[in-house]
Every structure is written in structure tokens, then in C-alpha cells.
Design a protein around this nucleic acid. Structure first.
Lengths: 111, 111
DNA sequence: TAGATACTTTACCACATGGCTAAGTATTCT
DNA sequence: AGAATACTTAGCCATGTGGTAAAGTATCTA
């Protein structure tokens, strides 16, 4: 089966889950412990931890353990990489539309 | 299990697959038939069709059948919606960093 | 009209994913 | 030391996903 061929796969897949997007939203407001992250959700701690691990694996989140508390923070560089893919494709398409428009104008001119 | 709660779920999940991203890249270059789309890939036609259906369900791609040929085209509005989520979160985080910097400057001033 | 073409549908399979409980480990508090 | 806290690991389960082959359905083309 198609495993994750690259970072973009992992990142978009990570972003596809609403719980994980909520974790990211929360972390945009500042670092938080695993326990703090779990509070808004009606899911067991191991499940939340799995989500955090997924976010860590693709680099969207980093964490560090001090004593018995693990503190998580967001890493926006990976968000930016995904953003870049999207923007690039949006502009590819828009450039094509521009070229088409240009082409149509030329056709009219030639009549 | 967590079904797709909203469009963003579906869209990011659709973008998580490399074949589907390749289809989108191809369609940025102009509309294509199902057969044309399948050519670069080493997958069976039904598999490719499934991918197209996934892209259609979340609105990234639209298609139309004329005779026996189905022509697919990209719809950038949905790409833009996902892009908006990413940009929003990047800026949320950046604003927070700005506030922190500001806060630190004030602390130094007060010394 | 017979054959080729271009999808479509159906039915199946293996593996990934998100969820859980229960038990384990390391720190910190009393 | 003993109890409480804050994760962590392990193991299990149901469903979803990407893949297949084979058979079906329209449309062209000769």
C-alpha cells in the first residue's frame, strides 16, 4: 500500500483530522502540556498522545519533556511548506486562465 | 470512527495522497479525460477513477461526460479555502510571536 | 451491425487509522 | 516511604482506504 512517500503526504494527512487541527489551533495560542491539550476533547489520553505523535512526525509540532510534563509547541515552517504547495497550484491555474484569455483576445484581433 | 466532519477534513485528506496531488498538478495544465489522467500512473483504471471521485466529492475537481469521454477540470476555490486555513494559522502564530517580542521589549524598558 | 473504446460497477483484499482499556514508568507531593 | 500525578506502552477492535480483477454499459468506428 502507498506509504507516505514524502513530507507533504504526512502533513496533509495530519491536517485532515479535526482533532489534530484543533490541537494546532490551540498551540497557535502558545505551548501546552499533553494534559492541557487533552482537556477540550472527549477522548482518552493515549488517543490524544497518538495525535500529538502524528503531528510531531511530520514536524508540525515539537515537544520536550521536563520532569513528568511534556510541553508541546507549534512549528510553522511545515505549515508554510504545505501552504506553498497550495499557493503554487492556485497560481499555476490562474496563470493558465490568463494565458487563455490572452489567446482569446489575440484570436479576436486576428478576425 | 470520526467521519469527515467538514469540507476541510475531506480536502486535506484528498490532498494527502500523492496520486491525487499529481492529478491536480496535471489538471492545472488544463482539462483532461479519465484515460489521459490515468496514463502517467501505474494503476488500474478503477483505482484512478476512485481518486477522481474523491477529488470531486470535496469539490477540488469537477467533471462532465460527453459521449463516452469524461472530462475533468480543476476547481481552485476549494484549494483556496484550504490555503486560507493554513495562512490563518501561520499568521495567528506570527502575531503571537510579535506580541511576545513586544512584551519582552516592555519588560526591558521597565527595568 | 460487429468490434473497439472509454469508462463504470461490483466484489474482494491487506493494511492503516482512530478509538479504547489496562497496565506500566517516572516525578513530585505529603 | 507512600500516594498522587502525568504521561507512556501495549494490545485490542471496527472501519476506512488504496489497490486489484472481472464483468457490465454506453458510444463511437468500420
Amino acid at each position: 500500500m502507498a506509504k507516505y512517500s514524502n513530507k507533504l503526504d504526512m502533513t496533509f494527512s495530519a491536517l485532515a483530522d479535526p482533532t489534530r487541527r484543533a490541537i494546532i489551533s490551540r498551540l497557535c495560542d502558545g505551548p501546552a502540556s499533553v494534559g492541557e491539550l487533552s482537556q477540550p476533547f472527549d477522548i482518552a489520553l493515549p488517543t490524544l498522545l497518538k495525535h500529538v505523535r502524528v503531528l510531531e512526525k511530520c514536524g508540525l509540532v515539537s515537544s520536550e519533556k521536563a520532569g513528568r510534563v511534556r510541553t508541546c509547541r507549534i512549528e510553522t515552517s511545515v505549515l508554510q511548506e504545505s501552504d506553498e504547495w497550495l499557493r503554487q497550484h492556485i497560481s499555476l491555474w490562474e496563470n493558465r486562465l490568463d494565458r487563455m484569455e490572452h489567446h482569446i483576445k489575440n484570436m479576436k484581433k486576428d478576425q
